[in-house]
Amino acid sequence: MIKKPFQIGHRIQFILSVLSLVLIALAVLPVFLDGTPWPVHARNYLETNGAGESGARNLVSAIYLGYRAFDTLGETIVLLVAVTGTIGILTKAGAVLMQDSSKNQHLSGSAFALPGEKRKSNYMRTHLLETVTGKLGPVVLLFGFYVMLYGHLSPGGGFQGGVVVASGIVFLALGSSSLTTSGIIRPEILSRIEALAFLMLILVSISGILLGKGFLDNPMGTSSIIPAGFIILLNIIIGLKVGAGIGFMCIVMLGKE
C-alpha cells in the first residue's frame, strides 16, 4: 500500500525523462544532420581586428569586456542578485537549520565545518584539513589574482580569477584555527568589498559617457601606453566582485556568521 505511489512516481519520472530526451533530440539533431556550414563572418573579423581594436591578445577577454561588455554588466548584476537572494534565504532558514541540528546532534557529525561552530557538532574535523587548507589558501589566492590580472594575455579573466579567489578565501576560512586570524574571511568585510566593486563597475562604465564616448566604451582609447588598460581595470573590478561575492556566500553557508 505504501509502495504504490512510489511506483507511479517512478513511471512518471521515466515518461518525463524519455520525453525530455526526445525534445532535446528534436532541438539538437537538425543542427547536426543539416549540412549548412557554420557562419564565419564574426570569427574572421575578430581574428584579424580583435586584438588591434581592444588591445587584448586573449580574444575571449576582448569579446566579453570589449565588444560585449554590456552582457558582462548584466551577468554581474545576475550574480549580485543571486548572492543577495541566497543570503536572504539563509538568514531565514538558518534559524530552522540550527534548531534541527541541535535536536539530533549525533547525526550531524561532519569533517567539513568551520571553527566558529560548536565543536560537538563537528567532532570529525581533523588537523589534516586545518593544516592543508590553511597552507594551500594563500597559494590559491595568488593564482586567482594572477588569472585575474593577466586575463587580457593568457586564458582567464575576471570571472575565472574571481572564482579561484573565492576558493582561496574558503580554504583560508576552513584552515583558520580561530575567528580573528585574517580579515579577508570575515563576512562583513567581504560584503563591503563586493558592494564597493559593484559601485566601481558602475562608475567605470559611465566614465566613457563623460569623455564623449559611449556607455562602457574605453575612455582612454587604444592609443594609450597600455592599450588593454580598460580591460585590465574591468577584470580587476569584476574579479574582486565575484571573489568577494561567492566567498561571502560560501562562508555564510558553511556556518560562519
Binding site: L97, S108, P155, Q160, V163, C250
Partner: peptide, 25 residues
Amino acid sequence: PDVAITEAAVGAGVSTIIFVWIIRH
C-alpha cells in the same frame, strides 16, 4: 582553456562546497 578554468573552479570547487553543505543537514 578559459572554459576549463571556469569548469574546474566552479564545478569542482564551489558547487561541491554547496552540495556538501546541504548534505551536512
